[in-house]
Design a protein around this nucleic acid. Sequence first.
DNA 1: GCATGGGTACTAGTTACGTCA
DNA 2: ACTGACGTAACTAGTACCCAT
Length: 311
Amino acid sequence: MEKEYLGLSLSLNFSSNGFPSHLSLLHSSSASQPSSSSCQPKPAQWRHLLHAHSESRPILDVNQAPSAAAGRNNEEDGGVSSPNSRASSATAKRSTEREAGSRGVSDEEDDGDGCRKKLRLSKDQSAILEESFKEHSTLNPKQKLALAKQLNLRPRQVEVWFQNRRARCLDQTPLSHLEDLYPVESSDATKTKLKQTEVDCELLRRCCQDLTEENRRLQKEVLELRALKLSPQLYMHMTPPTTLTLCPSCERACGSTSAALAAASSSRNQPPAEYHQFLHQHHRHQQRPVAPPWAPIQLRPSFLDAPPQRS
DNA sequence: GCATGGGTACTAGTTACGTCA
DNA sequence: ACTGACGTAACTAGTACCCAT
């Protein structure tokens, strides 16, 4: 599944807590804050409400093994044909339930226990699951069944645990390549998705700062060049270069600026190397971290005539 | 070879329960 | 005893891929 992670806009507005608005939203929702729409019961809530009003079912001890849980449907324990049968059947059911308007009720009857009771896995169960996760972060149907049998859980529970575990563990993130450029100190060694989102946010904030600074510097440079253009006696003394040379102080072509100068000089027959040296003599080069790995700044060849861009 | 539909397996996001300070 | 924060099990919705037709 290929995803375009770097489609993020850099025109993010950072709120007072340092998070872009949509990330703040993510942050808050992950912290289980009730959403605005929670006034109206969601399907699961309907299910819960329905169950709360029906006293016909006995309360089950969900920490008991499936075989011991009274009334539980154990169809999955033999789920050879459908390792993800519950999810799949739920997916298949969704459309029909939507049409029938009987959402949520049929699941109960399939499950046998009605409401969502939360199982707390024992330390042993968690340890075995962790061990298994270290070996392979995904399970094939056989492994899932074996693990479920070993742990006395339903295969669906093992499956859910692995899904949640994968969500919690992020080794590679879309912005991980920026961490070398912008090291972020983290107090906690364990990477959760939420923590990684915070780190990503910090990376983007720093990149944004750098780009703003770069933009300011370039605008200043354009102004200087424009002023230079208006004083003809200055480049009367300059000899046109035959080749474009590297800047001796920074040992690079000074990024897009020199490229734009080269482009401009090729069309205007102006001396870029001398301009460059002049700039070095007249203002200090800022040594920044390596430029962020996204699109280089494109300047029009006629940028010397263009009015300064507003940031 | 192609379109199509069903099944499967996954991710992202959300909800709700259990625990703890 | 109560409460809010937090971790996480369980859920929904959506998507990609595979395979049979």
